[in-house]
Design a protein around this nucleic acid. Structure first.
Length: 556
RNA sequence: GGCGCGUUCGUCUAUCGGUUAGGACGCAAGAUUCUCAAUCUUGAAAGACGGGUUCGAUUCCCGUACGCGCUACCA
């Protein structure tokens, strides 16, 4: 029989990082075995389930790229079937009506109350002491007919144990005596979780249940239901939990947005990077490789590689640079810097579009690249290729600013220092627009400290104008710069720029860094970026001249 | 309280009785020098504790401690 797995979240919030990983493992297992990956929304708790949560979970799964292979099942649609199953067990004498009045709902701290009660009962608690367990069928029917409210409980056998071979935790055994006669159907007719899960998993013909370790002990109860129903239970594999830095529970209330999948989407994470990070939380292929494509993950995934101990999702709420796990951040940056450029481009496009920085000219549109681009030349290099193994940036012919060729080369150049997709529209804004901000720290460090630059940089602009051929057409998005018309004949490329800037620096009797960093601040607005020679070239002669003449930053 | 599960560098992990206990992130130092949160090099950093079994235990067994889960007419 072919493998069928399911991811079954309850829609009581957004897609939690732990749930996302559960979904990932199910997805990987399905793909690895050629099986089906199904999705079931467990919305039986009408009080807490919301449509908005369902949407948010679907959004998260969609972002991660896990589309279910069959139609989504909503557990609430199956309530009638669950009730029928409970009724059947009742008729067969495998369950009984419990007429004990329902307890008034305890306030706020349910967990604590339950624990308290359990403590009070101690070890002596007899799980089979419910008086209604032994009520005669006639009497039970009579009271039910009379309208007495009742819950239906499973009649757990007195002697024996449940056992199953967990694919992660190994053989699990539990005496029946340790399992109470669990409620299958509430007195208001609503099926309870354990019944609903079992019925749906049977209905959906699930062969492997891969879920959080918090269900490890529930599994015994569910096996009891399977047995009562006369169905062979599926294979189980429980996953270690993902914990907060203090090894406590990771929750929205305490930890906020770090646990939500949408946060990562909105923060400029790449789904492929986050998936890769998630895969390594509690699973390992037993080797030293860390960067895996989806295909590799699918190929290498196995239940044997899953860990037994919980993993900590490491972050620091009071350090903005470590707002989320630093390995996740590193992984994202690694992907941005090293993934095949054609895979990165759609993400960059979306980001630029969202910030009104996109130009239709950047769209490939079937046209071939005419310029040689460092990493597109070796287009297929795999994510994870060492930076050192990548081809060095090579000089290119002057590019028309704003063209497809220019765009590709620019993205390739600036991605080397970026961490998230957001950086393309923030840090990298100056490459795509004249309207960019200046980082005060950059101004202080690179301009204000060297007052001479106020004259020198416009002078450098004059020098550029005099030395270089106006070989690229005016940048359309820019202001019309009045050029002297006596432009030189040199192409505006890295080696020529270097010669000119070095000569200029010597004339001024200053250090190269002073000029370069001053120019960097004027051209890009930030203190960090690629080699200035590349920046000059990619910015283009026209824009370079214009920005070097700008006095605006000096007034900020 | 009961039952269950777990415990290798700060974090994610490798090791399936014999290793200088490996890698990654992060951290530190150095290099590069036109910047850097990039890149390169180097470094510090771990088997919870106590007993067994064994020629030999991180690895197997027992106990203790600690953590986590379940213990609900929640999921």
């Amino acid at each position: 029989m072919s493998v069928r797995v399911r991811f079954a979240p309850s829609p009581t919030g957004y897609l939690h990082i732990g749930s996302a990983r559960t979904a990932l493992f199910n997805y990987l297992y399905a793909r690895n075995t050629g099986g089906k990956f199904l999705l079931r929304i467990e919305d039986t708790d009408l009080a807490r389930s919301t449509e908005e949560s369902t949407r948010s979970i679907l959004d998260g799964l969609n972002w991660l790229g896990f589309a279910p292979d069959e139609e989504i099942v909503f557990q609430s649609d199956n309530a009638e079937k669950h009730r029928a199953a409970a009724r059947r067990l009742l008729e067969e004498g495998k369950a009984y009506r419990d007429f004990t009045p329902k307890e008034a709902p305890t306030d706020a701290n349910v967990k604590e109350a339950i624990k308290e009660r359990a403590r009070a009962q101690g070890a002596d608690k007899n799980m089979r002491d419910n008086p209604y367990r032994h009520l005669s069928t006639d009497e039970s029917d009579e009271r039910a007919a009379a309208g007495d409210p009742f819950a239906i409980r499973l009649k757990v056998p007195t002697e024996g144990n449940t056992s199953f071979e967990d694919q992660v935790y190994g053989l699990q055994e539990r005496d029946y005596a340790d399992t109470e006669d669990l409620v299958l159907l509430r007195s208001d007719g609503h099926p309870l979780y354990n019944l609903a899960v079992v019925c749906d998993d049977i209905e959906m013909q699930i062969t492997h249940v891969i879920r959080g370790q918090d269900h490890l002990t529930n599994t015994h109860k569910q096996i009891l239901i399977y047995e009562a129903l006369g169905v062979t239970p599926p294979t189980f594999a429980h996953l270690p939990l993902i914990m907060a830095p203090n090894k406590g529970k990771l929750s929205k209330r305490k930890h906020g947005e770090v646990v939500s999948m949408t946060t990562y989407r909105d923060a400029g994470f790449l789904p492929e990077a986050f998936r890769n990070y998630l895969a390594l939380l509690g699973w390992s292929a037993g080797e030293e490789q860390e960067i895996y494509s989806l295909d590799e993950l699918i190929q290498k995934f196995s239940l044997e590689g899953i860990h037994r101990s919980n993993a900590v999702f490491n972050f620091s709420q009071d350090d903005p640079r470590k707002w989320t796990d630093d390995k996740a951040q590193w992984m994202n940056a690694e992907y941005i810097r090293t993934m095949p450029l054609d895979k990165l481009l759609p993400h960059v496009k979306a980001e630029l579009k969202a910030n009104k920085l996109w130009r239709e000219e950047y769209e490939p549109d079937g046209r071939a690249l005419t310029a040689t681009i460092p990493s597109t030349e070796a287009q297929v290099f795999e994510a994870g290729t060492e930076m050192a193994d990548r081809p060095e940036a090579i000089a290119i012919e002057p590019l028309e600013i704003g063209t497809y060729d220019w765009y590709i080369r620019t993205v390739d150049l600036i991605r080397a220092r970026f961490f998230t997709i957001k950086d393309f529209s923030s840090q990298g804004r100056a490459y795509f627009s004249e309207d960019f901000d200046f980082d005060p720290a950059a101004i202080a460090k690179n301009l204000t400290k060297f007052p001479d630059l106020k004259q020198w940089l416009p002078e450098l602009a004059d020098r550029f104008e005099a030395e270089f051929a106006q070989s690229s057409p005016p940048y359309e998005g820019g202001v019309d710069v009045a050029l002297s018309g006596r432009g030189g004949s040199l192409p505006f490329n890295e080696s020529n720029i270097e010669t000119v800037v070095k000569a200029f620096t010597e004339e001024k009797g200053t250090k190269l860094g002073v000029i370069m960093n001053g120019a960097r601040t004027l051209l890009t607005g930030v203190a960090v970026g690629p080699s200035m020679l590349s920046v000059f070239e990619i910015t283009g002669l026209e824009r370079t001249i214009m920005r070097l003449r700008s006095q605006l930053p000096w007034r900020l």
